[in-house]
Simulated assay, not measured.
Amino acid sequence: MNLKEHIRSVPDFPKPGILFYDISTLLEHPVAWKVTVERLAEAIRPFKPDLLAGIESRGFLTAAPLALELGLGFIMIRKKGKLPGPTVPYTYDLEYGTDTVEIQEGAVPPGARVVILDDLLATGGTLNASVHLLRKVGGNVTGGACIMELTFLKGRDKLDIPFASLLQYDE
């Protein structure tokens, strides 16, 4: 199955000049979505995860069903102030300023093998920050995966973990 046929391209969203790849049309198609989850499962099995971490918010859609498929736990990596209870933050640089991602304190057992998931790898900044956050709390980040990768942005080059993507876009 060609999964690209189930992803809608939306020009000029969220601002002029940006071509947005929308997975809502993939999620609407149960067979294509099931194939996506199965292919992601195959892609991350070599990373031997104990736990899957999803990056807010479309990473939740990717990681949660995959965790269920593989019989693993799932944790959320969220923007600052979105998780209840004590959290552990990691602040990273953006082109203009900084951003912070957090996980709940105690969510990752020390030494747990964690794979990070999102829907899309673009510049790699948030996924890289998530790697650092998980390492900060004692996680062993064994890999990362996304449904789509914008290869022309070279986000993979920022990562020091094995990484897999199902679909690549060169422009």
Rank of each mutant, 00 (worst) to 15 (best):
L83A: 08
I116N: 02
L83G: 08
L94I: 14
L83C: 09
V88D: 07
T98M: 03
T87I: 11
T87V: 15
D99L: 03
G97I: 11
Y96R: 13
Y92D: 02
P110G: 07
V114G: 01
K80V: 02
I103R: 04
V101W: 03
T98K: 14
G81Y: 06
Y90W: 14
E102G: 08
V108Q: 08
V108Y: 06
G111I: 13
E105L: 11
L83R: 11
L117E: 10
P89Y: 12
R113S: 15
G81K: 10
T91D: 01
P84V: 10
G81S: 07
T98D: 01
P89F: 12
V108P: 00
L117F: 13
D93F: 09
G111S: 09
K80S: 10
D93Q: 15
L117H: 09
I116A: 00
P86C: 00
E105N: 11
P110S: 04
T100Q: 04
V101D: 01
P110F: 05
G81I: 09
V114A: 03
P86S: 04
D99Q: 13
L117K: 11
R113P: 12
G81M: 08
I116Q: 02
I116M: 06
G111W: 11
R113K: 15
I103D: 04
P109D: 03
Y96T: 11
D93P: 01
R113H: 14
E95G: 11
T100A: 05
I103T: 09
L94C: 08
P86E: 14
L117C: 15
V114R: 02
R113C: 10
A107T: 07
E102H: 05
I116L: 09
T91N: 10
I116C: 00
E105T: 14
R113L: 13
Y90H: 15
I116R: 04
A112H: 01
G111Y: 12
E95T: 15
E105I: 03
A112M: 04
G111V: 13
I103C: 05
P86Q: 08
A107G: 00
E105K: 15
G81Q: 06
Y92V: 00
T100R: 11
L94Q: 13
V108F: 05
G97F: 10
A107Y: 00
G97N: 12
P86K: 13
G106C: 03
T91M: 09
R113E: 12
K82Q: 06
L83D: 06
V114K: 03
T87A: 02
K80G: 00
V115D: 02
P89N: 14
K80T: 01
R113Q: 11
P109N: 01
P89G: 15
T98S: 11
Y90T: 05
I103H: 04
L94T: 12
P84L: 05
P109I: 00
L117M: 14
T100L: 04
Y92H: 01
Y96I: 10
I103N: 02
Y90F: 15
P86V: 06
L117S: 11
A112T: 05
G97C: 12
T98N: 03
G97R: 09
T100P: 02
T87H: 05
G97Q: 10
P84W: 03
T91K: 07
T87P: 00
Q104M: 15
G81E: 05
G106I: 06
T91F: 01
L94W: 13
T87Q: 02
T100M: 02
T87K: 08
P110M: 05
K82G: 05
A112Q: 03
G97L: 09
P84G: 01
Q104C: 08
P86A: 10
L117W: 08
V114C: 05
V114P: 00
P110A: 09
